[in-house]
Simulated assay, not measured.
Amino acid sequence: MGIFSRLSDIINSNLNSLLDRAEDPEKMIRLIIQEMEETLVEVRSSSARVIADKKDAERRLNRLKSEALDWESKARLALDKNREDLARAAIAEKQSIDDEVIMVEKEFDSLDDHLAHLSEEIAQLQQKLNDAKAKQKGLLMRQKTVSTRMRTRGQLSREQLTDAFEKFEHYERRMDTMESQIEADDLGRDAKVDLKTEIDSLAKDDAVNEALEKLRKDMKQD
């Protein structure tokens, strides 16, 4: 089932209200445009049929008027020839045709009014369709803007994350450099030599202590 049940529903519709109530405005505007375009095709087809009927009525009207004039001419001729009976018959035929002319003229006027009404509806429908397409264009532009902003925001987030990683890697490199420097300073040192030196120091300390204790004893004896 379509969004609109009648042509008047389309003409009197409030696009903003329809889109505000829609869960998916983009889908709704596509459906609205599709139905408007289909309705416009139907109305134009109806107009084409009315135009054809109007042209047919016009042809019949011209033919009847021509026949009426012809019967009037025959009635005049009959009177000129003093044939009143024939003149009466010709006048009767003319009057019959005149009655038909009146009917066809009414039909022609009705078709003309109908065509004018359809033309007005087509104009209103076309305006509504233009408005709908403008709305659709606006929605697409908004969607494009939002998508661009989201991509930009995502790109900024990635750039910020990349910057943070780069700073962390830079800090790690500095730590590695400092540790490497310390390790480099220790290169070439003999662990055994360092141990011997430390033990020799302990022996020297013992010798010093013994000499100091001996000096104290000598001083007491004096």
Rank of each mutant, 00 (worst) to 15 (best):
L64K: 11
R63S: 14
L86H: 05
R76W: 01
L86G: 06
K74D: 04
N62K: 13
D70Y: 11
L61N: 12
R60K: 14
W71D: 05
E67I: 05
S73Y: 00
N62D: 15
A92P: 00
S66K: 14
Q95N: 13
N82H: 13
R83D: 14
R83G: 00
L79E: 15
K94E: 03
R60M: 13
L64F: 12
W71E: 07
R63D: 14
K81S: 10
Q95L: 05
R88V: 08
R88T: 08
K94L: 01
D85Y: 05
L79D: 15
K81F: 07
D85C: 05
A75N: 04
N82I: 10
A68F: 02
A92R: 07
A92Q: 10
E72G: 02
R59P: 04
D85P: 05
N62Q: 13
S66E: 12
L77R: 09
I91C: 03
K65C: 09
L61R: 15
E67V: 05
R83M: 09
R60G: 07
A90M: 06
A68K: 12
E72W: 01
N62F: 07
A78M: 07
K74F: 03
W71N: 10
S73F: 01
L61S: 14
R59I: 08
R63N: 10
R60Y: 11
K65V: 08
E93R: 14
R59H: 04
L69M: 13
Q95W: 00
Q95H: 03
N62L: 12
R59N: 03
A90E: 06
R59Q: 08
E93G: 05
K65A: 12
R63P: 01
N82C: 09
W71H: 06
K94D: 00
E72K: 03
A78R: 06
R60N: 15
L64N: 12
A68E: 03
A89L: 06
D85G: 07
S66R: 14
K81W: 03
I91S: 04
R59M: 07
L79I: 15
A87W: 04
A89F: 02
K81D: 08
R76E: 13
L61H: 13
L64S: 13
N82R: 14
R60L: 14
S73M: 03
R63C: 05
R59C: 00
D80H: 09
R59L: 08
R76F: 03
L61T: 14
R63K: 14
S73V: 00
D80E: 15
Q95R: 12
K94V: 00
A75Q: 08
R76I: 07
L86F: 05
W71L: 02
A75F: 01
R60T: 14
K74Q: 07
A87M: 06
N82T: 11
E84K: 13
R63A: 15
A68D: 00
W71V: 01
A89W: 04
N62Y: 09
A89V: 00
E67L: 11
L79A: 14
D70W: 06
